[in-house]
Design a protein around this nucleic acid. Structure first.
Length: 267
DNA sequence: CACGCCTCCTGTGCGC
DNA sequence: TGCGCACAGGAGGCGT
């Protein structure tokens, strides 16, 4: 579900709502099915939210006294105020009388309160690659990482190691743009540079459209994103490739549905 | 160490 | 209509 553009769209709505709000009470599902689904969230009680940042697909809200509220939406996570739903797994009561509700049908999402920067409870966050839309996402380093790995390019992108925030949708989109076969284990420097630019472009365009909604993803105000109509690869199997009109093909790669153009994305 | 497979969970849509 | 299976935007754990 939510990849970087969706999480960023949520962040942009959440930040002004939460700034300066104090958490007065915390409720989490008493029967969490995943270990550490809600790691130490009650430790946020009494603390004030300074702002809402994003790192890859994580929302990170610094609290006063050096703590952080970390949230990951998983596949079906939604953040809304005062939401009434059987799938609400956590509620943060605020000093303005509202409560921030975390709805998560599939329970793949996580919340945690930790000491700032101490991510032992969230190893993925500590391992995260560079932010794709920042200067730390360097094309030379990216090309070097792609040369170094023996993994097929798409699962490597999904690992969050070479770059943060790319999931199944935008991996397919970016690989199509850069004309790289998702199974390719050899990506030369020119193609790596093209992929670097494609990742930035597909993410940035989607942020401008407030993300891609199929079913679950929605923003804090309940609205859907507008990017689904602009997808050229993900979910477009059988439709003509916009470049060459060859029907787009769907395969399973690393357990994930993968759509690409068999003509312009050669292995 | 790296990779592929399975699992976590619930809902939906499809084919029979 | 009902059933069973495949699949869904993510990630972690395990065995080879």
């Amino acid at each position: 579900m939510p990849e970087l553009p969706e999480v960023e769209s949520v962040r942009r709505q959440l930040d002004p709502e939460l700034r300066g709000r104090r958490i007065t009470a915390v409720w989490t599902d008493p029967i969490p099915t995943m270990p550490r689904e809600f790691h130490d969230v009650e430790a946020g009680t009494g603390h004030t939210v300074e702002r809402v940042d994003r790192r890859g697909k994580f929302l990170i809200a610094p609290l006063d006294q050096g703590r952080e509220l970390v949230m990951h939406l998983g596949m079906t996570g939604v953040l809304r105020f005062d939401l009434d739903s059987p799938h609400v797994r956590a509620r943060l009561s605020l000093d303005d009388g509202r409560s921030l509700c975390f709805k998560d049908v599939r329970r793949f999402g996580r919340m945690a309160v930790v000491e700032a920067g101490m991510y032992e409870a969230i190893p993925m966050l500590a391992m995260l690659g560079p932010e794709p839309l920042s200067d730390e996402f360097d094309p030379e380093v990216f090309a070097w990482e792609l040369r170094r790995t023996t993994s097929p390019i798409k699962p490597f992108l999904l690992s969050q190691r070479p770059v943060a925030g790319v999931g199944n949708i935008y991996a397919d989109e970016a690989l199509w743009m850069a004309r790289i076969h998702p199974m390719s284990r050899k990506v030369g420097k020119a193609r790596a540079f093209a992929l670097h630019a494609a990742i930035r472009e597909t993410l940035q365009r989607s942020i401008e459209r407030e993300g891609t909604t199929f079913s679950d993803y929605q923003m804090v105000n309940g609205a859907s994103g507008g990017n689904a109509a602009y997808l050229v690869a993900y979910g477009q199997q059988g439709k003509p490739c916009p470049r060459c009109t060859t029907p787009m093909k769907k395969i399973v790669l690393g357990g994930r549905g993968t759509t690409y153009c068999p003509r312009c994305q050669r292995a």
